[in-house]
Structures are given as structure tokens and as C-alpha cells.
């Protein structure tokens, strides 16, 4: 929703609640909370017009810790509850805090349908690749072979790639970021708030109790430059400690170019996050589980498509313009209904 310039300038402290977070010390959730409290004063919406909706899981305790309106909802149903909140009152800034279990297993159905409709809701997925609240079972994003309490011989399931799934479902703003890159995390949150349409932000979040180090190859200072590529609009897809590697699209998938070894920088793709066609964004998302290629973070896709709630209001206005306002009494006696004495 659009910024309101007349309101008092809020600060981070305005979004702190009196609740003590019930997350384990060292949890990546604290970083997401800190960046959210930093970003919310910047989105230009008064606190009373912001709603955080969650389902069930560690991530879903989030609404207790941001001083806005909040709904701690039903397992998996945050997307559906948020849809109801937004369509009942389209002027609200509606945010969803969810996790990989909540959004992708029991809530998988609601997850894809939220994106298909393109309601202006911002979903933040805390992906720690484990069920934390129930103390350590594999989740729909746990890697194949993962040993957990419910997969003692190793998981034989293949994980969802949440960004690929969001792209395939038609989300109009899709970003990925990491708990240990707070500056980038806050930038992704802010841009999501500015986007009109469903925004999806996947946050790689460390569960230091049940899945410690799942993303260390992407966050550890010694190796991250070689393993992460930042997607930036109108900038070349370059990565590596010495900025000497780049990505080029071969028509089917992405290849890594070695610029120090003779490959040309002019062959490196210049990224366009506003491209409507999601083929390139999807191909980039597929690099995620490939050890020989970097994992992309940043905005995969940022496009404007008809908003559900705008169409909803427009449809009623158009119909009223041509047919007049609905009258309850005449509606009661219309349709498959006959007057009898």
C-alpha cells in the first residue's frame, strides 16, 4: 500500500512489544525480527494499519514480537487467514510470517493459491529446513538423505525449492535472503512492502538447535563469496571472491564463466528483475541445490500483474455502474424463487 506522508515518523522502538521471544538463544529468527522492526518504520504505514498473520511453528510466534495487529492462526492456514484479512479491509498492510513446515507441508495448498490470486500480501518464509517446534523432524525443504528423528535412516523425499514453487505459482515479487546478511534482508523486506501484489521472501534461517549450519556454506565469511550470487537489477551476474566468475544462460540452464581464465565479461547475463517471463528467474532458482554453481539470493522476479483486490472492487463498481446498486428486497425475490399466496 502507498506511503502516508502525514503520519508521525515511527522508529524501531515503536515496533517492540513487551513479550520476551520464546526462541532459543542464537536462533536466526532474532535477525528477521530485528530487520523487520527496522524496516516497518520505513514503509510509511501507521502501526494500526499493519497486520502480521502467522500459522503454527517457531516462526509463527512472530506476531507476538512486533507491535502491530497480529493473528496467531491455524497450522498451515496463515495464507488463507491473511487473504481474508486483506479482502475484508484492502487498506491494511498485511504480512505473513511462516515456516517451511507451515507454508509448504500442511499449508502447501494455500501457499500456491495465494500466489495464483496475487493479493497484496507479503509473505516471509523462515526456511530452516527442519521442524523446530516439534523438536527435529524433517521438513518439506530438508535435503534428501537428511537424518532426523522421523528419518533415522535418512530422508528419501526430495525437497521443495520454495522460490521455484513461488515462481511456478505466479508470485509477482519473489526474493531470497539470509538471516546472517541483515542489510540484504532489510532491503528485501522494504522492497516487498513497496511491491503491489503478493510478495514472497524466502529467508534462509539457521536453527542452531536442530539443524545448525544448514546454510553456513552461504553465510560463512571464508566461503560465501564463492557460493552465493547476488541478483541485482541491471547488473551482471558476477560472483566469486575476486569477482571473477559469472553466469551465462545457454538456452537451457546457467553455465559458470571463469573470467580470470579467458571467458568474456560481455557473455555474462545482465539481470532484469522486471522481466515478465519467468523462464530465466525459474532457471536461476534451479541453481539452488547445485554444488558446482552458486546459490542466488536477491530479487528473482518483480512484476506488476492485476491485483486481486483491485479487480474485486472494480468488478463491483463496473457492475453497479451498469446495473445500479443492489437492492436486498428485490434480490430476495429473484433467482430460483417464486412468489406464492
Amino acid at each position: 500500500m502507498s506511503a502516508n506522508k502525514d503520519i508521525k515518523q515511527l522508529t524501531r522502538d515503536d515496533f517492540v512489544t513487551d513479550q520476551e521471544p520464546r526462541w532459543c538463544p542464537g536462533c536466526g529468527d532474532y535477525s528477521i525480527l530485528a530487520q523487520t522492526r527496522k524496516v516497518l518504520p520505513e514503509i510509511g504505514v501507521p502501526r494500526e494499519n499493519i497486520v502480521w498473520v502467522s500459522g503454527i511453528g517457531c516462526s509463527s510466534r512472530f506476531p507476538y514480537y512486533v507491535d502491530t495487529y497480529g493473528i496467531h492462526g491455524i497450522h498451515g492456514r496463515a495464507a488463507a487467514i491473511a487473504s481474508g484479512v486483506k479482502l475484508a479491509n484492502p487498506d491494511l498492510s498485511v504480512w505473513v510470517a511462516t515456516g517451511d513446515g507451515d507454508a509448504l507441508s500442511i499449508g502447501g495448498n494455500h501457499f500456491i493459491h495465494l500466489f495464483r490470486r496475487n493479493i497484496d500480501i507479503n509473505m516471509v518464509l523462515f526456511n530452516n529446513q527442519i521442524y523446530g517446534l516439534t523438536k527435529g523432524q524433517y521438513s518439506p525443504t530438508s535435503e534428501h538423505g537428511k537424518i532426523t528423528k522421523s528419518s533415522p535412516l535418512g530422508s528419501i523425499e526430495h525437497p521443495f525449492n520454495p522460490v521455484s514453487l513461488a515462481i511456478a505459482s505466479g508470485a509477482t515479487y519473489i526474493a531470497r535472503t539470509m538471516d546472517r546478511d541483515p542489510h540484504h534482508l532489510s532491503e528485501m523486506l522494504l522492497k516487498a512492502s513497496q511491491h503491489e501484489g503478493t510478495s514472497f521472501i524466502e529467508v534462509y534461517q539457521n536453527c542452531n538447535i536442530f539443524n545448525d549450519g544448514a546454510f553456513f556454506h552461504l553465510t560463512d565469511k571464508k566461503v560465501r563469496s564463492e557460493n552465493v550470487i547476488y541478483l541485482e537489477h541491471e547488473k551482471p551476474l558476477i560472483f566469486g571472491t575476486n569477482k571473477d566468475k559469472g553466469l551465462t544462460f545457454n538456452g537451457k540452464s546457467f553455465d559458470v564463466l571463469n573470467l580470470a581464465n579467458g571467458d568474456k565479461e560481455s557473455d555474462v547475463m545482465i539481470y532484469d528483475e522486471y522481466e515478465y517471463d519467468s523462464t530465466i528467474a525459474f532457471s536461476l532458482s534451479k541453481l539452488t541445490y547445485n554444488p558446482s554453481k552458486p546459490t542466488p539470493v536477491g530479487i528473482f522476479r518483480n512484476v506488476n500483474v492485476n491485483l486481486y483486490e483491485k479487480q474485486m472492487v472494480q468488478q463491483i463498481e463496473d457492475h453497479t455502474a451498469s446495473n445500479g446498486k443492489g437492492d436486498l428486497k428485490s434480490l430476495l425475490a429473484s433467482g430460483e424463487s417464486w412468489s406464492v399466496n
Partner: peptide
């Protein structure tokens, strides 16, 4: 099954 407290040990036992 699906994990839920306080029944998760049944699923975990079955997995084991």
C-alpha cells in the same frame, strides 16, 4: 502421520 506435540514420539518410534 504428521508430527504434533505431545504425540510426536509415536511417529518417531514408527520411523525408527
Amino acid at each position: 502421520g504428521y508430527p504434533i506435540t505431545p504425540a510426536s514420539e509415536i511417529a518417531e518410534g514408527a520411523a525408527l
